[in-house]
Design a binder for these strands. Structure first.
Length: 201
DNA sequence: ATCAAGATTACCT
DNA sequence: GGTAATCTTGATA
């Protein structure tokens, strides 16, 4: 059985943690339905409020972003566009306000639950199977992540990551981030080269 | 009290 | 390729 990632994993420097997140297994032990929902992380983006205008923490600490100013190992969930939640892994120290947006995953467990929540049905077309977790808000819809999960400690027993083999440099693609209007040239988006579950190639 | 923008998605042509 | 949907947050008054 794979081991849960510990505090020291998250407290490292942002971009190091970002690349190391690829391939790891995201687990949500949802007590409400008595299930352990699992998926493999295949795409992420890094944000750093100390130098990055696109980061929510660039303006300093606020009620919304305060968890990003904690030490690494917490979940930062935010609401946007009047509809969507997105989930991030907080990294680093208490000064910078750094976090990593979970952008796409490959479903591992409970396909039926994910399918029902995303498409209100369980018989999916091939295209829909790819479409279950390939976007930050899609992940939150399928996992049922919302304000209730804001600030969860990732070293506890509800939401956590499992150790997995490190993805080698030649299998990681680095690009500019998607869907932002500031600091658009920072090459802080990373995804697994061969994954078909990435949001955009 | 009011306002503009937003780390997106689904659906349209 | 373009855009409506929809509402919270943070800033300004």
């Amino acid at each position: 059985m794979n081991k849960k990632l510990k505090k020291d994993f998250y407290k490292r420097e942002l971009l190091t943690v970002a690349k190391d997140l690829l391939g790891k297994i995201f687990v949500f032990e949802d007590k409400r339905i008595n299930k352990k929902l699992k998926a493999k992380i295949v795409e992420i983006e890094a944000y750093d409020g100390s130098i990055d205008e696109a980061a929510h923490t660039f303006i300093g600490k606020t009620e919304r972003n305060k968890i990003m100013f904690e030490e690494g190992g917490f979940l930062y969930v935010y609401f946007t566009y009047g509809k969507h939640f997105c989930a991030n892994v907080v990294t680093g120290n208490k000064e910078q306000g750094t976090a990593i947006l979970l952008r796409a995953m490959e479903p591992i467990s409970d396909l039926k639950i994910f399918s029902e929540r995303r498409f209100k049905k369980t018989n999916l077309s091939e295209k829909e199977k790819i479409n279950i977790l390939n976007g930050p808000a899609k992940i939150c819809e399928a996992f049922n992540i919302n304000r209730d999960q804001y600030g969860i400690d990732l070293t506890a027993n509800e939401i956590y990551l499992l150790e997995a083999p490190k993805i080698s440099e030649e299998n990681i693609i680095t690009t500019k981030r998607i869907g932002i209007k500031k600091s658009i040239d920072l090459p802080w988006r990373f995804y697994i080269k061969d994954s078909q579950f990435v949001s955009r190639k």
